[in-house]
Design a protein around this nucleic acid. Structure first.
Length: 425
DNA sequence: TCTGGGGTCCTATGCCTT
DNA sequence: TCTGAAGGCATAGGACCC
């Protein structure tokens, strides 16, 4: 049996843990730059706030319905997530952390357990320990456990937040209920095509001929079909090393000047190098991209990207700036207004296993230099040490006008409890 | 004026080597 | 030495996830 544990409205729930006044009130969480809505409480969903809603278009509605608005606070959500995951691992050794708010659990050898009671206990202990409400779905395959979870979440009164797909009759009933666009692995494009072929439910999809699914949706679609029929094709995955690390951002407005964009791309390269060093990896390729604002169709559109081979594995900020700017020069075009750029480092190898290149290699002094820089930045804050290609006078600030505090990771943000006497807190 | 960021996997294509 | 088939690899793009 697979179990899928999903935290309910995770980001909104995190905010509520430390601010109980938010209970039963509509809450939305905004993306970086406060650009759009990326999470909603049930109350906000009921008010018709869609996922991805642009903030500037909905500000009036936020005010009108007294919706509580928060900038995303990843320090808080990341910490709350690891607390939840820690508790889950006490209930079965086989846990795959699938995302910040979801885990697959495998229950093998639990034949004699009353799984309904066991899962209700998991739910109780997680909620008691963290304040985060969860839903649990159990089924014979991963894809079906996603379906079961959806039912648990959708019908909390009947299911108490735990739904177990006991037999084939339950499977068929659930799949007939689930709309095709809500199936895990069916995105917008596939849903559109399937509907054109009169496939509207998960069940109808699961009954399609193998060849058709394979042809239209590749082996991925076929695996999904098998999973929905109850045949296990996906297993619990063990954490693998990352294959790429990305640092990409939208700009606060549109920019044309090369110098500005070069400065941004250099900063992304530095950030990527820091991430590489933190996980003990080096990269062999660096991908740089540049885009105009896709929402401004009235302006000329342009996007381009390039892969630069480094020639040797490196995680030196100095080298990565050099390669990134070299790539940028090849794709930059002076006629456009740019809104977004990014750097992705690829071809990652462990730092201690880098092969020696015959003619080129990272300057051996860089390693020590980077260690010192990382230490200084660690002690005095990111950006304490900057590079020549970064604009020293400029402080890049993300728009985060509705940020809650880092209650769990920053001592200065710790909650104070006042007990009677105002002097004692 | 203002619409996020970070990932994965699969396929098609073209080129090169065997 | 030439030729075609088959396999490996890099790259680009599309689909999906959270």
């Amino acid at each position: 049996m697979f179990g899928l544990v999903d935290c309910n409205n995770f980001y909104a729930s995190c905010e509520r843990v430390f601010n109980p006044n938010l209970r039963d009130k509509p809450v939305v969480i905004l993306s970086n730059n406060d650009g759009c809505v990326i999470a909603r409480s049930n109350e906000a969903k009921a008010l018709g706030i869609p996922m991805g809603a642009p903030t500037y278009k909905f500000e009036k509605i936020f005010k009108q319905h007294n919706i509580q608005v928060f900038s995303s606070n990843y320090a808080l959500y990341g910490d709350m997530s690891s607390r939840v995951m820690n508790i889950l691992s006490n209930f079965t050794p086989d846990v795959e952390i699938y995302s910040i708010d979801e885990s697959f659990l495998e229950f093998s050898g639990f034949g004699n357990y009353n799984m309904q009671a066991y899962c209700e206990k998991i739910k109780y202990v997680v909620e008691k320990g963290t304040g985060i409400p969860i839903s649990i779905g159990l089924a014979p395959t991963k894809a079906l456990s996603k379906v079961a979870n959806r039912i648990a979440k959708k019908f909390p009164e009947q299911t108490k937040g735990v739904f177990i797909m006991k037999d084939d009759a339950a499977r068929i009933k659930a799949l007939k209920w689930l709309k095709i666009e809500d199936v895990w692995g069916i995105g917008r494009q596939h849903a559109l095509r399937l509907k054109k072929h009169n496939i509207h439910t998960a069940y109808a999809f699961s009954e399609l001929p193998d060849e058709w699914v394979r042809k239209q949706m590749s082996v991925v679609g076929l695996r999904l079909k098998n999973e929905l029929q109850g045949r296990r094709t996906l297993e619990l995955e063990t954490p693998a090393h990352k294959k790429a690390i990305a640092t990409t951002r939208s700009f606060d407005k549109q920019y044309k000047e090369f110098d500005y964009i070069q400065e941004r791309v250099s900063s992304f390269a530095i950030k990527s190098a820091e991430k590489l060093r933190r996980q003990g990896s080096c990269c062999q390729m660096i991908y740089v991209f540049l885009k105009t604002n896709k929402f401004r169709q009235d302006l000329p559109q342009y996007q381009n990207s390039i892969v630069v081979q480094t020639g040797y594995p490196t995680n030196s900020s100095i080298d990565l700036i050099k390669f990134a700017v070299e790539g940028l020069k090849k794709i930059y075009h002076p006629d456009y207004y740019y809104k977004k750029a990014g750097v992705i480092v690829m071809g990652l190898v462990p730092e201690d296993q880098r092969q020696l290149a015959f003619f080129t290699a990272e300057n051996p002094k860089h390693k020590q230099l980077m260690q010192k820089i990382d230490r200084l930045n660690g002690a005095y804050g990111t950006g304490a040490v900057r590079f020549g290609s970064q604009d020293l006078g400029k402080v890049w600030k993300m728009r985060r006008e509705h940020l809650s505090q880092a209650y769990t990771t920053n001592l200065g943000s710790i909650i104070e409890v006042n007990v009677g006497d105002e002097n004692k807190s």
